[in-house]
């Protein structure tokens, strides 16, 4: 019996458990794909924007100018992260299907969850690396501008014969606008938001028939998810004691993710303190989101027919 079979065979009984190696292989290929799609040119644009924002030749105070650099930088990072999370995630799977690359991948011993996870991780690694790069560019610029302002402001105040106390206060105000360790937490917050957005998008792309559909729906959910709290408050305010409205608002809250809470980086760059346990909670919440939406995606994808 065995002699009729080819010599170079191996047993067909290899493990069916999830393999980190395969996930990583798909993630790495996704990463390469996105990088070779010239994604990182965006970083160049970011650097230009930052230098422009950092040199706005307007008569604003040092504190304000530094604050503007921070807001423009983090705002751009946030915009990049969630937009990229939606667009890249929405494009990747339909594209694989269209090119029939998906057939060749899934006809290898690859679990569908491995494929989904690999794609998601690939996108997230690109986002994380881009964010870190942007942060480094930003930090350098902010640091240079802070030192710069510190010197000129102190010189101006000294020349004007201001008291040491006042010079000290102004210097402290400028330094307070400079780099802080907490900014890494702000960066992490932006990343968390994009991870949640990407996982919601990946779920949508498993049911959607086109990338465009996925992108539009995902963006709508994103926007509604930011406004959900406002909407609920508004309804409750308008229809006090209306049981139907109350129930509808409750249902709305259950279905629509609350994206707003992931915008807590804005407080950090305004200089508010961060409690570590909140960062952990938000990280846990994000993981919960990613896990659930991957599960939802898998529910659709695991026996999806191509």
């Amino acid at each position: 019996m065995a002699d009729s079979e080819p010599a170079n065979q191996k047993p067909a009984g290899r493990t069916a458990l999830i393999s980190v190696g395969r996930i990583w292989t798909i993630a790495a290929s996704t990463f390469t794909q996105l990088v070779r799609m010239k994604t990182f040119y965006f970083l160049l644009a970011f650097a230009v924007l930052l230098v422009a924002a950092g040199n706005l030749n307007i008569l604003f105070s040092a504190v304000e100018q530094l604050s503007m650099i921070k807001k423009v930088s983090f705002g751009t990072m946030d915009l990049f992260a969630w937009l990229f999370a939606i667009v890249a995630t929405a494009l990747l799977i339909p594209r694989d299907l269209e090119d029939r690359t998906l057939y060749t991948i899934l006809s290898k011993p690859v679990l569908r969850i491995e494929y989904l996870l690999g794609k998601l991780i690939g996108v997230l690694v690109v986002i994380l690396l881009s964010l870190v790069t942007m942060f480094v560019i930003f930090s350098a610029l902010l640091h240079i501008r802070t030192i710069d302002f510190l010197h000129t402001e102190v010189a101006i105040l000294e020349q004007a014969g201001r008291s040491q106390e006042m010079i000290q206060a102004e210097a402290e105000a400028i330094i307070a606008q400079g780099l802080r360790k907490e900014m890494w937490v702000a960066l992490w917050a932006i990343f968390l938001k994009s991870a949640v957005v990407a996982s919601v998008t990946i779920f949508l792309s498993t049911i959607a028939s086109s990338s465009l559909f996925t992108i539009i729906i995902s963006t709508i959910i994103f926007l509604v998810g930011h406004a959900s709290q406002m909407m609920i408050d508004f309804w409750k305010d308008q229809f006090v004691d209306n049981i139907v409205v109350k129930m509808l608002a409750g249902l709305f809250r259950i279905i629509v993710p609350d994206y707003q809470i992931f915008s807590f980086y804005e407080g950090i760059i305004l200089g508010e303190k961060v409690l570590p346990h909140l960062v952990w909670s938000m990280t846990g919440m994000s993981l919960f989101y990613v896990g659930v939406f991957l599960l939802l995606g898998l529910l659709v994808f695991f026996d999806k027919e191509f």
Partner: peptide, 17 residues
């Protein structure tokens, strides 16, 4: 989320709507 939101608002990390 409700509790996280109120904690974030309390610590001024999040602005109320």
């Amino acid at each position: 989320e409700k509790s996280l939101r109120s904690q974030l608002i309390e610590t001024h990390l999040l602005q109320p709507p």
